[in-house]
């Protein structure tokens, strides 16, 4: 095993081009487990800790450019307003120690369906900025996950940042696990209201081979909200709409039975979380609307 320590992003890209099998390591929270347990012996380990750019974020007009290695703790503390869904998801990641080291780049690189950030990124809308010596490109989050623990990266590419749309409405995130802290998702659900475009986006974790959106559920809800004039009248969402949305979210799952939970539970729990997060976000939207109207 060789240990590569690029001092800059350019050096990292060059190293990755030269050694496409090199395994990047930042927080180490996935890679080191595999090494410690003898599941993986990469030829090259490439440390990204010295590349300061990966630890920076910039809040832009419409989106946040989040460095791949910004620790979850920073996201929770600093980006709660701009990226509420991701901040909530970050808070569910493992333990304080892990949140101090791990970042979204690791979740994306590993592309495990159980990664906590994925449903929040899917719901918010995001693009993954990847780069190689050949150049830089942005991969829409919807196209990023290509299979179980597979992503759209080419062998010579590294994840530099993720561009997440700034919240224009309430966002929520829930994760079902069999322990009240430090638990891998049995399944997870993210939901974002986008009042500006009058759309709703979702993300489901650990309930399909890849993180997925519940597109049929989104389409149904978008139509139902539009038809009922809900965005304007701010009415309570009817139980039948919530129920249908919840059922469609369950139907979007393609889960398996494993040691963490049954497929049947995952489908069920995603439905419950979909209904609850819809209620929480919608109530929050109505509250904000009333407050705005009250002020006007």
């Amino acid at each position: 095993m060789d240990f590569l320590r690029p001092a800059s992003w350019e050096e990292a890209l060059a190293a990755k081009a030269e050694h496409p099998t090199a395994v990047p390591i930042a927080g180490g929270t996935d890679v080191m487990v595999e090494i410690n347990f003898d599941h993986r012996r990469p030829e090259y380990l490439m440390d990204l800790n010295r590349i300061g750019d990966l630890y920076a974020w910039e809040v832009g007009e419409d989106s946040v450019r989040l460095g791949a290695s910004v620790p979850y703790t920073r996201i929770m503390e600093n980006l709660r307003a701009e990226l509420p869904g991701l901040a909530l998801a970050s808070h569910t990641v493992a333990s304080p120690q892990i949140r101090n080291r791990g970042g979204v780049g690791g979740n994306l690189g590993t592309a495990s369906p159980a990664g906590d950030a994925h449903p929040a990124l899917l719901a918010a809308g995001a693009e993954v900025e990847v780069e190689s010596v050949r150049g830089s490109r942005r991969i829409p989050i919807d196209d990023f996950y290509t299979g179980v623990k597979r992503n759209a990266l080419a062998p010579d590419e590294l994840i530099r940042a993720v561009h997440v749309k700034k919240a224009d409405g309430p966002q929520q995130y829930s994760k079902a696990g069999t322990r009240n802290a430090m638990v891998i998702a049995v399944c997870a659900f993210g939901l974002a209201l986008h009042p500006r475009t009058r759309t709703v986006r979702t993300g489901i974790g650990s309930a399909a081979p890849t993180p997925v959106r519940a597109t049929a559920a989104e389409e149904f809800l978008n139509a139902a909200l539009e038809e009922g004039g809900f965005w304007d009248n701010g009415k309570v969402i009817t139980p039948s709409v919530a129920k249908r949305f919840s059922d469609l979210c369950s139907a979007a799952c393609n889960p398996i039975d494993d040691v963490r939970g049954t497929a049947s539970y995952r489908r069920h729990a995603v439905g419950v979380m979909a209904r609850r997060t819809l209620t929480w976000t919608w109530e929050s939207y109505r509250g904000a609307r009333r407050a705005t109207e009250g002020a006007a």
Binding site: T29, P96, Q97, I98, N100, R101
Partner: peptide, 13 residues
């Protein structure tokens, strides 16, 4: 300064 799991920090890091 930051609490971390030292088992998950590669020595070289």
């Amino acid at each position: 300064g930051v609490p971390v799991c030292s088992c998950l920090v590669a020595a070289g890091q």
